[in-house]
Design a protein around this nucleic acid. Structure first.
Length: 312
DNA sequence: TCGGTCAACGAGCCAT
DNA sequence: ATGGCTCGTTGACCGA
């Protein structure tokens, strides 16, 4: 698997010490992912004061239903000592449907996070334990009634996922776990994000294709109108060699096609056929009909004239 | 209030 | 059987 583009992201990742008095990660963030050495990279996901407002009402939920996002899921990643670490199962009370999907759960169990210690003008810590979820137990508690709470990923989380998506639009289990650990999301949330992201990409591509086809169609329509005009002009000018409906002159076909009042038996007889060396597209398309291959006009066709009595 | 966005979900399909 | 995917949809949230 390819390495995740962690270091390429222009995120507010803290390298070493954070400028704020309180750091989300009191330990360095997961040092490695898939063998990469990011020892002093601390994933300090932060939001500004304005962003904080939206995050403020994000309350915690707990992840227990999915055991996959334990730290063991990404063995290369050291256990994180983050205030946003997911709460234990006994504190679980919320999940993505019915309870707060978004809230962070500090390790110490308090509802608010360390961000409150920072001045408003400074970057605030993001409660990144948004993924914590406990679907099964809560469903039982709710009697099955599910009230979904909207999760909004932070800009940093989204940017991180975007960067990863650019590297690979699908995830391996390992990558999923690593991302989930990095962003303090549930692997399921990472998975869903990638699914939705692929859908958005596809939709955009379809829109682009549709637009291109529309332009192509418009161009063809213009070309068609132009050719129609040319045909009309040629007919009007009574050119010495007018355009004929050659369908009439195809043996085996003419009889089945609408008659052309412009042609009569004489003009039709001016068209002869040459033998075809093998099966042609025509005979393939119309196997039941006789087909004589390419035809040629053996002598000049008389000028177009009306013959009301001409029928096939 | 309404429409857009997007996380989340369920159904169905497919590969292993 | 299982897991991951796509597709269509739902519902919370947000800005006009």
């Amino acid at each position: 698997p390819r390495p995740l583009p962690f270091l390429d992201m222009e995120l507010e990742l803290s390298l070493g010490d954070l400028p704020t008095p309180v750091k989300a990660n009191t330990m360095p963030a997961p040092a490695t992912c898939q063998g990469e050495d990011h020892d002093d990279l601390a994933l300090g996901l932060r939001v500004t004061a304005t962003e904080r407002a939206g995050q403020e009402n994000q309350r915690t939920s707990i992840e227990t239903a999915e055991g996959e996002d334990s730290d063991e899921a990404c063995p290369e990643l050291p256990v994180r000592a983050s205030p946003f670490r997911q709460a234990s199962a006994q504190t679980a009370s919320a999940n993505s449907r019915g309870f707060d999907v978004n809230a962070a759960v500090p390790v110490d169990g308090r509802a608010s996070t360390a961000r409150s210690l920072s001045p408003p003008s400074m970057h605030m810590e993001v409660p990144v334990t948004q993924g914590v979820d406990e679907e099964a137990s809560e469903d039982e508690d709710n009697g099955g009634a599910r009230v979904r709470k909207k999760l909004r990923l932070s800009k940093e989380q989204s940017a991180f996922l975007e960067g990863s998506f650019k590297e690979h639009s699908t995830l391996t289990l390992e990558q999923k776990s690593c991302l989930a650990n990095r962003l303090s999301l549930r692997p399921r949330q990472v998975e869903v994000w990638f699914q939705n992201r692929r859908a958005r990409t596809k939709l955009k591509q379809m829109e682009a294709d549709c637009e291109r086809l529309k332009r192509c169609c418009d161009a063809l329509a213009r070309e068609n109108r132009k050719l129609q005009r040319e045909v009309a002009e040629l007919r009007a000018s009574r050119a010495p060699y007018p355009l004929y409906n050659l369908n009439h002159h195809l043996p085996g076909f003419g009889a089945a096609l609408p008659s052309c009042s412009s042609c009569d038996a004489t003009t039709r007889s001016t068209v002869s056929t040459v033998s075809s060396p093998g099966p042609s597209p025509m005979s393939t398309l119309f196997p039941g009909r006789p087909h004589f291959g390419p035809f040629t006009v053996t002598h000049p066709v008389p000028p177009l004239r009306r013959q009301p009595s001409a029928t096939l």
